[in-house]
Each structure stands twice: as C-alpha cells, then as structure tokens.
Simulated scan of single mutants.
Amino acid sequence: MTTTVRRTQQQRREEAEAALLAAAADLIGEEGVHSLTLARVGDRAGYSRGLVSHHFGSKGALVERLARSAQSGFVPGLEGLPPGLDRLLRLIDGYVNELGRMDASARAFLLLWAEAATTPALAAIFQERSQAFRAELCEDLVAGMREGAIRPDVVPDVTAIALLSQLRGIGMQLLSDPGQADIHQLRTQVTEVWRRALTREAGT
C-alpha cells in the first residue's frame, strides 16, 4: 500500500516561491535584470504569470526578494564556530571556493550588486546587505584582536571594507571571465595573504 504525503498549503507556497526565485536567478544570469518579466519567470518555473504576481506583486518586489535571499548562508560550515581569526579565514576560504562554483544564485547576486550602482531601490538593499556582512567581519576581527590572534593595530571597520570589496571583486572578475584562475590556488593564496596581513607574522 502506498502512502501519499499531502503537502500543507504553507509547504506548497514555499516550494512555489523557491521555484520562482530560482527561475528569476536563472533569467538574470542569462540575460540581465532588464530582460526580466513576471511572465518569463512564471514560464521558466512552470507557473502562470498570475501566480508570480500573487506571490510577489511586482517585478520590483521579486527582484528585491531575490537580492535579499541570494547568498544567504553562502559559505557552509560556519554555523556554531566562535568569532575570531579561525572563523574569518574559513569564511574567506569558503567564500572564494563558492565563487568558483558560481551557481545561478551567485551570478544573480553579483549582477544585481552591479546594477545597484545605478538603481536607488537596489542600492538601499545592497547597502543593508553590505552592512550586515561588514558587521560579521568586524565581529571576527574584534574577537581575534581580543584573543591576541590578530594584530592590535588592525582597524576593524576599514579592514572589513577591504575584505568585502576583495571578495565581491573576485566574484565579479570570475563572472566576467570564467575559468581564468585555478580556484584551489586562488582560495589558498587569498586566505594566506589575509592570514599574514592580520597576524603578527606581517611584522616579522
């Protein structure tokens, strides 16, 4: 006897939204945000335009939701790690590694980030995302300084900006010219450069 597991309305809603966001990410990665329409998103996901409108209301709301959700939990394996130098280096290494995979969500995130430079609505979203990322980096830097693993003359706020800029810059470079670098070598090199820059080894 086969038992059929019935999905709840909430489960169906979540599955539909995930499929629509994935379809939007695919289309943005292929043709850019300006080519995105609710009808094309629905068609790609196998739903009607009406369902896309029902879930998100407008193209702007859909893009905003995608910008907020893309790269959420981008680097696996950091959950539960205490803040400090080790977690920071794992984040750097893992971030570059994930950029090497460059899935549709990562491509869409980087393209939307670039678009934010000339789109006020997106700019506000990415300012918020960047602030949260910098705060996470600062937490690691401050904790590392407190425990003596990071040099005391490091300026957390400034260093966090430099780190964020380099990581996203690497993403844009890989997006514009895929396959230009050996990701294993790149992640190793970038992580080692930051380890040396942040520890007392830099002054020896």
Rank of each mutant, 00 (worst) to 15 (best):
H55S: 09
R13F: 01
I161D: 06
D157N: 14
R195H: 04
G171N: 07
E192M: 13
D140A: 06
R146T: 15
D177S: 14
Q11N: 08
A106E: 03
R44C: 05
E17Y: 00
E115Q: 13
F126T: 13
W194G: 07
A132K: 15
P82H: 11
F109E: 00
P156G: 00
F74A: 05
K59E: 05
S165C: 03
D93C: 06
R195Y: 05
G169S: 08
L175Y: 03
H55P: 07
A24V: 12
A45F: 06
G84Q: 12
D157T: 15
I183E: 07
T159C: 12
T37L: 03
Y95A: 06
H34L: 11
Q189K: 14
M1R: 06
V52Y: 04
F56L: 01
E192C: 05
L36H: 04
L91Y: 15
E139P: 00
F133P: 00
Q173I: 03
D157Y: 11
T37K: 02
L27P: 00
R68V: 06
L66F: 08
E64V: 14
G171F: 01
G80P: 09
F126D: 03
A45S: 04
P152G: 07
T191L: 06
M145N: 04
L27S: 02
V142H: 00
R40Y: 02
R195V: 05
R90N: 02
T3M: 12
H34D: 14
L62M: 08
R168W: 04
S58R: 00
A22H: 12
I170D: 01
V33N: 02
D86Q: 09
D26C: 10
A123G: 01
R13T: 12
Q10H: 12
G29W: 11
E15M: 12
A149W: 01
F74Q: 04
G94A: 02
D157L: 13
V96P: 13
A104Q: 13
H184W: 07
R129W: 04
H54K: 14
L91V: 00
D26K: 11
E15I: 11
A149I: 01
L78S: 02
E128I: 10
L51P: 11
R134C: 06
L122T: 09
I183F: 08
V155W: 00
P82Y: 02
R6Q: 10
L137M: 10
T3Y: 07
P152I: 01
D182L: 01
G84M: 14
T4H: 03
V75P: 05
R107E: 13
L85V: 07
R195Q: 07
A16L: 05
A45T: 02
A197L: 14
A114T: 10
A117R: 13
Q127F: 06
V41Y: 04
A61L: 13
A39R: 12
